[in-house]
Design a protein around this nucleic acid. Structure first.
Lengths: 264, 264
DNA sequence: CGATGTATTGACCAGCTTCAAGTAACGTGG
DNA sequence: CCACGTTACTTGAAGCTGGTCAATACATCG
């Protein structure tokens, strides 16, 4: 009953509100193959550390660049971007975050956030206490190890991105980005192969992720579309009819493999 | 005595040999301010996990791209690069590794190494057992936390690099790289401000780190040198007379701050 | 002394950016 | 229901940053 009332209030004020708080054992994300099963101990500790669930609208700043005392979240639903900006406004998107991604890890280690995080869509977040990182390590080493795993995984994604931006042509970069989004989103949307996956990016986002200008992104995406390598459907949804072909253009090994990952 | 004999044999065959094995408590790196003090427990566990010390010559591959079962090292002395290549040979340097950096973290988490690591100079390495990462987390949470710290720190460096390559001009990028090398190396070479710091990179390395062509790196570095922003002395050593000026060209906040870090 | 790897420079060119302008889609308020 | 502002998308033209090609100089090393 109480849960129902909370859900109502979240509906009424979705802009910053606390939402219905799902128990970790019931977390719908855990049903996905993408996430490794968690032990009872782990679930109990996480439940204990979880402060609240929170909903924020598209465009909201989850973490402001250079802020300190930033919060610690797990993204439960929706997409977000991690980015850095130069003082004259040039922006580089470092990573595109999807459900299950841990937000705020990098900042905890230094005084001020070295990057900002912004919601691309409405997001649902699992909020954690400040000292969570340390308590995780201290109380349950498997979860501490999980944090390291997530950090390393994120690291590898940024590495890929750096190779993209530094050494691939505009066409290759764009193909690589679309393919990577397709593959990652597929883990959350089983029928994405047929009807396409959720695609909340603007051309400007793509440009900022790839280190290109908006205008050139348009030309490049037109070329890829003309070759039949992707389609944008209503929603908008991204459809990749032949991932292997896109991988070939991107000069990417195929298949890309995702590993079962901890959910924290 | 035995230590002396071991040292001799390392001198005789520096190409792959096991070197004199210094006790962790005596590790000269720990004397530097850069590294946070370690407890007796931590030192004992590390000593226990340390398999051997190893010396490899400049140019040696510490980790081969796409290899599996890669080793786990801490870099004790010398510099190395972490890189990825495209199948047609284009190479992107992801990070430049200096003493105290942990090598092989990212790979442990997946089957195959997602990147290669190559020695820039002769390197001395502290080699660890395969299961070290897990044992660290399990047996001493402070060290597990330290691993997470190192991973996050490395992550932040790659983020910086991505911003560089994606959004800065050639001149800004080059200035940012030189400044970052200067600052990081200074932590190991106290008199580097006066006589310059160790600089084992070729123009090709700089090009591969910045996503530029060799020729253009030359033009850019000539420009920076002409402006008196850096000098290359015999050694070769990199001298940065006015770091703040270099930071200004790079559009980088100054001063850059390094945080006391765990040494594992 | 040739062989190799690195540094250096010029000439030319192309991939990408910038500038400019117009269109389409959507929400808001009158 | 329409006028309007806003945001995203689209396209063309011109120009610059940075890449490619080619040649020379220089150093180190067996």
């Amino acid at each position: 009953m109480s849960a129902v009332r909370q859900a109502r209030s979240a509906e009424a004020a979705p802009s910053a509100g606390a939402a219905a708080c799902v128990r970790c054992t019931e977390c719908p994300l855990r049903r996905l193959e993408l996430f490794a099963p968690a032990s009872r101990d782990e679930l109990e500790l996480l439940q204990d550390l979880k402060l609240a669930e929170q909903v924020m609208p598209a465009g909201a700043d989850l973490i402001l660049e250079h802020a300190d005392n930033t919060p610690l979240y797990t993204l439960l639903s929706g997409w977000a971007i991690r980015y850095k900006t130069l003082d004259d406004g040039r922006r580089q998107i470092l990573a595109i975050l999807m459900p299950g991604d841990f937000v705020g890890l990098q900042q905890r280690m230094t005084d001020a956030a070295s990057h900002g995080v912004q919601a691309l869509t409405e997001v649902r977040l699992c909020r954690f206490a400040r000292d969570t990182l340390w308590r995780l390590h201290r109380d349950l080493p498997t979860l501490g190890y999980g944090i390291t795993w997530l950090s390393a995984n994120d690291h590898a994604l940024v590495d890929d991105n750096l190779l993209n931006v530094g050494r691939r042509t505009a066409l290759e970069r764009t193909a690589a980005l679309l393919l990577s989004l397709h593959v990652r989103a597929l883990a959350h949307e089983p029928d994405g192969c047929a009807i396409g996956v959720h695609y909340p990016l603007t051309r400007q986002h793509v440009a900022d992720a790839l280190g290109l200008s908006l205008v050139h992104v348009h030309r490049t995406m037109r070329e890829l579309r003309a070759r039949g390598l992707y389609e944008l459907r209503a929603g908008p949804r991204l459809l990749v009819p032949d991932p292997a072909a896109l991988a070939h253009v991107a000069r990417l090994r195929w298949p890309l493999q995702l590993h079962a990952r901890p959910l924290i």
